[in-house]
């Protein structure tokens, strides 16, 4: 369970999160919607531990562990996963090498044995097949020359291999065509699990047709201003954010 309480955060002295409170239970898919500049991406970075953000108040607990005391790698080992809006290209590092290094680093941090190469290969092949990731892509440098859809599929493949307890999808739908959106969403849905929570950040209701959320939260000016069920997303699609933006003011 992820619990965020009264979270205040700023970057370069500019306040972005203003007392945000949010709970996502195990097995729950929570969607966060909100206008540009409402702090959605900042929230994902603060949860995952990106440098440069100063948390001035509040706490973020994952299964009771205070994430704010851990660095980004330690948070990942604790089960936090962030699917990037713009996955980074890593020239010179093959996808296979990167995957293995990350999986083993997390295992090491948790005191587990390293994966044997055959075991690792088996997992990657199985995961890649499910997402339609070609074996050839696994031998190429990570994300280098990948299309937008391929990069997002690679994010979901990494998520499936790292088996997080809490996953954040930061505008995973951006840059995807309908086919890619369907494949990526199916990948996410396959990972829905009673023990795993999701935070799905999106601008548009469309993604939520594919990944149907349990709860929908509206974010404005660094706070959650409205919480509802999946129908809230439909309402936002029709009426826009104007009814809610005012509430935070």
């Amino acid at each position: 369970m992820l619990e965020i309480r009264n979270l205040h955060a700023e970057i370069d002295g500019k306040k972005i999160l203003n007392g945000l409170t949010l709970t996502v239970n195990d097995g729950e898919v929570a969607a966060i919607m909100g206008p540009n500049g409402s702090g959605k991406s900042t929230l994902s970075y603060v949860i995952s531990g990106r440098a440069g953000y100063e948390v001035t108040d509040g706490e973020v607990l994952l299964d009771g562990v205070n994430l704010l005391e851990l660095d980004a790698a330690e948070r990942a080992a604790k089960g936090v996963f962030l699917a990037f809006q713009y996955p980074l290209e890593i020239p010179g590092v093959t996808t296979m090498t990167f995957l293995k290094a990350c999986m083993n680093a997390q295992r090491k941090a948790r005191g587990e044995a390293e994966l044997s190469t055959p075991d690792f290969m088996k997992r990657v092949r199985a995961g890649a097949d499910k997402l339609g990731v070609a074996q050839d892509m696994l031998r190429r440098a990570l994300n280098v020359g990948f299309s937008g859809g391929e990069k997002k599929r690679m994010e979901i493949l990494q998520m499936s291999l790292l088996e997080p307890t809490f996953a954040i999808l930061d505008e995973t739908d951006s840059g995807l065509d309908i086919d890619a959106l369907r494949i990526v969403s199916e990948g996410v849905n396959a990972l829905r699990d009673p023990k795993r929570g999701f935070l799905v950040i999106t601008h548009y209701q469309r993604l939520l047709d594919y990944i149907v959320p349990d709860t929908v939260h509206v974010m404005s000016k660094g706070r959650i201003v409205k919480t509802g069920g999946k129908d809230l997303a439909l309402e936002l699609e029709q009426n826009g954010y104007r009814d809610y933006v005012g509430e935070a003011a």
Binding site: G49, D71, A72, V80, P87, I90, F98, A101
Partner: peptide, 13 residues
């Protein structure tokens, strides 16, 4: 950015 990406996947800095 690349370092954070790798860190977010569990690689220590």
């Amino acid at each position: 950015e690349q370092i954070f990406y790798a860190q977010a996947r569990g690689l220590p800095r």
